[in-house]
Structures are given as structure tokens and as C-alpha cells.
Write a protein that binds this DNA or RNA. Sequence first.
RNA 1: GGAGAGAUGGCCGAGUUGGCUGAAGGCGCUCGCCUGCUAAGCGAGUGUAGGGGGUAAACCUCUACCUCGGGUUCGAAUCCCGAUCUCUCCGCCA
Length: 427
Amino acid sequence: MLDLKFIRSNPDKIREMLSNRKNDLDLSVFESIDRERREMLSRMESLRFQRNKVSDDIAAMKKSGQDASSVIAEMKKVSSEIKEIETVLSGIQEKLDGIIMTIPNMPHESVPVGSDEKDNPVIRTWGEIKEKGFEPIPHWEIGERLGILDFARASKLAGARFALYMGAGSRLERAIINFMLDTHVRVHGYTEVLPPFMVNSACMTGTGQLPKFKEDLFKIEGWDHYLIPTAEVPVTNIHREEILKEEDLPIHYVAYTPCFRSEAGSYGKDTRGLIRQHQFNKVELVKFSRPEDSWDELERLTADAEDILKRLELPYRVVTLCTGDLGFSASKTYDIEVWLPGQNLYREISSCSNFTDFQARRAEIRFKRKGAAGTELVHTLNGSGLAVGRTLVAILENYQQKDGSVIVPEALVPYMGGTKAISSRDS
RNA sequence: GGAGAGAUGGCCGAGUUGGCUGAAGGCGCUCGCCUGCUAAGCGAGUGUAGGGGGUAAACCUCUACCUCGGGUUCGAAUCCCGAUCUCUCCGCCA
């Protein structure tokens, strides 16, 4: 959510932003409703002023034994008028909120203008793509041949877009989770948290999933709860409606959670393998910072995510999302894309964003500067560190051998109980 | 699931015969004074949001907010109804 005053006083900037984002929202609707709301508001407030004043007079008259019945009768009319305006006003307010909630964040000035992912510039690449000397195969074939991924039985259990990991596959997923958590906690200095995997609608509104992206979420029937689509939601909302102290900042959290997404609208896309699932594991990094620090924090957050791929020796590249591809709440996003030889392409494995004060305003996450009056909104950031299932995909495809086995990356061997290679479900 | 208690400012905690209470008191915090340092002490200040005025500052003024949403009333933190959350006891259960 953007600042109401900012929207009001910078309509040209908003319009430019909307067109850069390929968003067809009509701002003039906002402008007319906003004007209407302010007119009603000042009318109501002056009536309330009158009512408060006369109520005091009535109290004084009663105290001194005077008859106040004629004034009371008059105030009765004023009161009912106030009530009428209140009703109208709350309708207007609701409409206005509805519009404000659908205006996306302002992209940072460094974000390139573009229409879709084809316009995302690659800003760096890391690692060497080696010739294997044989034709690499996609991870779903590797996994099924080794008996560590079973998509047929998964669909018996839950349908399409679910996976069943078996034996060494299951252990590898768990090893990746632990390796990522340990690295972020011990090396990068994050605080580990384990949040609820379902949250109420206030949290979903706070981080921007609601009201605009309802169809992407799984809702619990009969409850005000949703399965989380990312740990960003519960972890960012940890400090919802709080006033933090300046010396508490920055706050760095890392959380492992499963993520649940309906993937509405992605029918026919990535139907094979682990890439696009209704349930997947993710280790997420979340930061709260002072406004002046958030751009540095974004660079470091991205570097922390990249470090996992470096330690696993997986080739990757980093792209900056252009305005047309940028997410609703984000001001700037780096996508980290890992190399998948089995499919001969780069695939998103992490998305690192600075949301500036956009989420903080919705979620009312503020801080108080030492010695200064008043409060300010914090900046929130987050990024995958990394998507666990896709990391497993990258390991299978990059470390596959000619004989069908898969070498375990050195950094993961201790997490696999010493296992150096996977040649069957039980290896 | 059954029975009860409660939700007030950054925190603790008054206020329940409705009206000068945005809210006593304390803690914390900020600024100043004092003390050789520390501790203690003294004085002043200290909520949020939204309007309007003023040069964008200081400042002035209005409105709202005592969990949330309704209701009663000229007027509600205070009365009534509903919701949510917390706590205690009983039952049940991992």
C-alpha cells in the first residue's frame, strides 16, 4: 500500500508507474472517490464538533438546574444526520480502500523499464557449465530411475503437482533444508524461526496476498485461515502492528516452511517433475531495516542466497526484474536462476525483493528513532534462500553421472550421514 | 466440548451511580540541573491517525481512537448485544 498523500499529490508518477508495470488501473476513479470522501469527512467533523460542544452545554445546564429539553431535541436531529453521513462515508471509505489496496508499489529508479521476462537484464553469472560427455536427462527421469521420486503414487495420494520422495531422495531434501538453515544461521547471522504454516487473513492482507491474489491461496474451509504460500507471510507478520526500537534494526530471520500454492492459471505449464508443485519446501530470508539501509540489505540478502549455490557448486545467474515483470508489492527484485542441464535452461530458484515501506504500511510495522519524536515505517525485504525442491532438481541434473547415479555435493555429505553418491533409493 | 474471569497509552495499572478523562498514579524514555565517576536526587516533557490554518519548520485548531463491530443516549472507556483473543477450572486428546 502506498501513502495516500503520496498518491494524491503525485498522480503523474503513479500513472507512469502503472503504465511501466503494464497495469491498466484507472486512477481517475481513485481521484473522484478521494475528493468525495474528503468533502463528506469535513462535513461530518464539523457536525461532530457542534454535537460535542452542545453536549457540554447540556451538561452545564443540567448541573445548574436549567431546562435543556429544547436543545436536546435539536441535537437529536444533528445526531441522526451524523449517523446518515457515517453510513455513506463508510461505504466510500471501503471503495477507496479497495482501490488503494490494488495500487502496486513504486519501482526503484534502478529498475529497468520493460514489458516481460525477456526484458530482464542479466547482471552476473557464476560457475562453469561443463560438458558432461553424455546426454543429460531431466530430474524426473533421474529420480524415477533411482526410485527416489515417485510421481505416479503421489498423484494417487493427492493428484497432479504433488511429489512423493522416497529413501535417499527424502533424505536429500531434508539435508538441503538443514544445510541452508545452518549456513544462514551460523555463517550469515540470521535468527532461525519456525512459524505456523497457516495464518489468518490479516496476515495475508499485511504482506499483500489479499485481497488481490486470493485465487492463488488454499483456504481452510470454515476458518479464517489460509495455508501459507511462502514463509514471507508469517515471518513478516511477526512484527505486525508493532513499534520497534531503532537499535533492534536490522532484524534478520530465516525460516524453513512448506509452501502451498493453488497455481491457478498455470495449467499445462511445468507439468512434469518437481518444478511447479502445490506443496513445496522453502527456506526463506526475511529482513526488517531502516529505510536508509534497505538497498544495501537487498544486495546482502541476494549475496546470502547466492552463497548457498556457490557452496553447492551449482552454476547460476542473477537477473533484475524489469517493471513489467516486477511483483505487486516489490520495489526491486533480483531473481537467481540456477542452471538445469537436463532441461538446458536457467530456472528461477530464488527471488529477492525490497518492499520498501509498502508491506510495512499495510501491516503497520514501525520503528522509533533514538531521540526523535514520532514513528517511521520500517522497510521489509525477503528472498528465498533457497527453494528446496528446485535445489534438489538442480543437484540431480548437475551432478548426474553417465551410469545414472548422482554424486552428493561435498557440502551436503555431512548432512547425508556420509553418503557420497546416490545410486538407488537406499544408497 | 462445559463453567467462569478479563482485554485501557511503549509497559504496569486507576477509572464501571454515563458528561472538563486522551485518560490519575507508577515504570520506561527524552531534555535540563545537580554530583569527582557510578548510583541516587531534582525540574520539564513524552500516544497514534486523519482534516483545516500557518511559509514546506515551530506552532494553532478540529475529528477519531480505552480489543473489534453494532446498539441505547443530546452525550459512552463507562450501559446493552455480538465477535475475537487471553487466563482459570472440569472433560477429552496428541
